[in-house]
Design a binder for these strands. Structure first.
Lengths: 159, 159
DNA sequence: TAAATACTTGACAGAAACAGTCGGTTATTA
DNA sequence: TAATAACCGACTGTTTCTGTCAAGTATTTA
């Protein structure tokens, strides 16, 4: 359950590839395709979305390719996925585009909201830079349960 | 993104309804259908799965219906969803049924694993009982980012 | 035993989302 | 101008989702 579509997965991997070349010129779609084993045609779709969102920029012509609009430290996994798959919305009730008919009577509303917030916090706390750095912070997050600078939890009712 | 299917959503709501009647006899499918606005036919599918998993029991004949196999304190949202939608598996790489070809070369593997662990921890920490109790703990979890007894994060690596 | 109640099961089907391809276009550089 | 590389929209087969339906089994009450 709670699967991520391939667009989101490939998108993050493509961004990782572009981030690797940060500071040393554009990275071509062909390069990304070869490194990450994703077809060029499919990558075009994905990178187009990210470009329109302003997360990456493109350079046409020979020697061209894609570059990050910002430093890898300032690009979160959350915003990448947000562009490619829309906001976290465990239920359609919580999807900003749809809306809920009977919020009050729905006992599970708060539950899904809490889960969604939890996920969002994780994704927004995780930076592209973290992927570049041998996954140390990522591994730590797996144990801690949070990707925030300091544990978000554990302030109230702690211990 | 990361949507839950209606089966999972309805399943939890059905379980909530059954939990409400805990200690005071079986709850009929008809009752659940009316309270939660889900068709009987669809609920049958859902409750069947949960019964086979041993989470609920059914009582046939007049006056029959469904009852919890255990106390609401001992049934987690995680296990309900697990039966209805399978395990949390952000990517098919992390799905126990599929498996990953090139774990090592996949830079994002750890990232998705961390997210999945995070979600699992949340769902396994949330009990049916919590839903019954006016959602106080659920609301708290929304702020804390964890459903554990105490904040899972911020507890340092060591035990 | 018959009727009523209620669960049990498998098959089926329309709709939506997913995953990916294809053909052609535009801009830049050498 | 020729090569390179991004840009764009339409299209399509497959899978998953979201249910419905029909027929059956088990149990209790009168």
């Amino acid at each position: 359950m709670l699967k991520l579509s391939t667009k989101g997965q490939y998108g993050v991997r493509a961004m990782y590839e572009i981030a690797k070349g940060f500071g040393s010129g554009p990275v071509t779609i062909k390069r990304i395709s070869e490194e990450q084993h994703v077809s060029i045609a499919y990558l075009e779709q994905i990178l187009n979305k990210l470009r329109r969102a302003g997360i990456i920029k493109s350079v046409k012509g020979p020697g061209g390719g894609y570059i990050l609009s910002r430093d890898p430290k300032q690009i979160t996994i959350g915003e990448i996925l947000n562009e490619l798959e829309g906001p976290v919305a465990i239920t359609s009730c919580l999807d900003p585009k749809e809306g809920c008919v009977r919020v009050d009577s729905c006992v599970t509303h708060l539950l899904w909201k809490a889960l969604g917030d939890n996920i969002k916090r994780f994704l927004d706390g995780m930076k592209l830079q973290d992927l570049l750095q041998g996954d140390q912070r990522v591994a730590a997050a797996s144990k801690n349960g949070s990707a925030g600078k300091r544990g978000v939890a554990g302030q109230r009712e702690g211990r």
